[in-house]
């Protein structure tokens, strides 16, 4: 890039600044609210920082909303879904990307179609089905519908397409067999997109609200967003301090994960580069 003239650069930075402020503002407001005592919320007005700090809000949210258990539930469910999705989607993506077999076109067409079907078209029968098999209000019921992912197959296949065929030929002459080829050659080479998909999956299912709302009827099973939503509908609807503290607690794990995984995530979504 050549250096642009000064006014153009100023405008550019101004735009970026506005975007960054808008993007970060809700997070900032969340923290500000969470750190101020409830009694102080209206008085503080537009002040940048609360006049008194009150960390008790976090304790109140944690205890009243039973967030500890919710976080644990979230961890178990998100982890189980991630594991299952990796186990199912990675081999499927490899087969679709690199193995020629009868019916692969049709089957991949099904994957694409599933990618386009919105939740509202599937949630009623899925819910009935889960209940028929007695899985309503169980952890299995929360996990099972997501053990595979059309998006995962699609994203991983996209990157695996760029693995040179010669490498798979080399694996064949080396005698690795299909499973070893998958584990020793394809998986390590697809790590960027696998990582990206893993982060994406964790985001999606940690943050999922709709399905737990349907399935997890008993409070013991509630996931973090569900617990938070219930918390805000309950009697303390106006305790914004505790609510914001709760929101911060629910948001934090995923935010931290993202900050760590950011580089790989962006790379992976780009399809990464594979050089021989």
């Amino acid at each position: 890039m050549t250096t642009s003239p000064v006014p153009a650069r100023l405008i550019k930075w101004l735009l970026v600044l506005i975007a960054v402020v808008i993007s970060l503002f809700p997070f900032y407001w969340m923290l500000r609210t969470a750190l101020a005592p409830q009694s102080q919320q209206l008085a503080d007005g537009l002040g940048f920082w609360p006049s008194h700090l009150d960390f008790g809000n976090f304790a109140r949210a944690w205890n009243k909303a039973n967030l500890g258990q919710a976080l644990l539930n979230g961890l178990i469910i998100t982890g189980a879904i991630l594991l299952l999705q990796l186990i199912t989607c990675v081999p499927a993506a490899y087969a679709f990307a690199k193995i020629r077999f009868r019916g692969s076109g049709v089957l991949f067409g099904v994957v694409l179609a599933c990618l386009l079907i919105p939740t509202q078209a599937t949630m009623v029968p899925t819910f009935i089905g889960i209940n028929i098999f007695g899985l309503g209000d169980t952890r299995i019921g929360l996990v099972l519908p997501f053990y595979s992912s059309a998006f995962g197959i699609f994203l991983l296949r996209q990157q695996m397409l760029s693995i040179p065929d010669a490498l798979l030929d080399a694996a064949r002459t080396d005698g690795l067999g299909p499973w070893r080829t998958l584990l020793r050659v394809v998986v390590p080479m697809s790590m960027p997109s696998i990582a990206a998909f893993a982060v994406f999956s964790v985001f999606t299912h940690w943050n999922d609200y709709l399905w737990p709302l349907l399935v997890a009827r008993s409070p013991d099973l509630a996931t973090p967003p569900l617990r938070l939503a219930v918390f805000q509908q309950a009697d303390i609807g106006f305790d914004y301090s505790a609510l914001a503290a709760g929101a911060a607690i629910v948001t934090a794990p995923i935010l931290i994960l993202f900050l760590f995984a950011q580089r790989r995530f962006v790379q992976g979504m780009a399809g990464g580069e594979i050089a021989g």
């Binding site: 040179p164 010669a166 490498l167 080399a170 064949r172 002459t173 005698g175 390590p188 080479m189 790590m191």
Partner: peptide, 18 residues
């Protein structure tokens, strides 16, 4: 392929990058 008494050097080497 791998049971033939043969080894092959590929056009662009085809080394496993990882």
């Amino acid at each position: 392929a791998h049971r033939r008494d043969m080894a092959i050097v590929f056009q662009h080497f085809a080394l496993y990058p990882h």
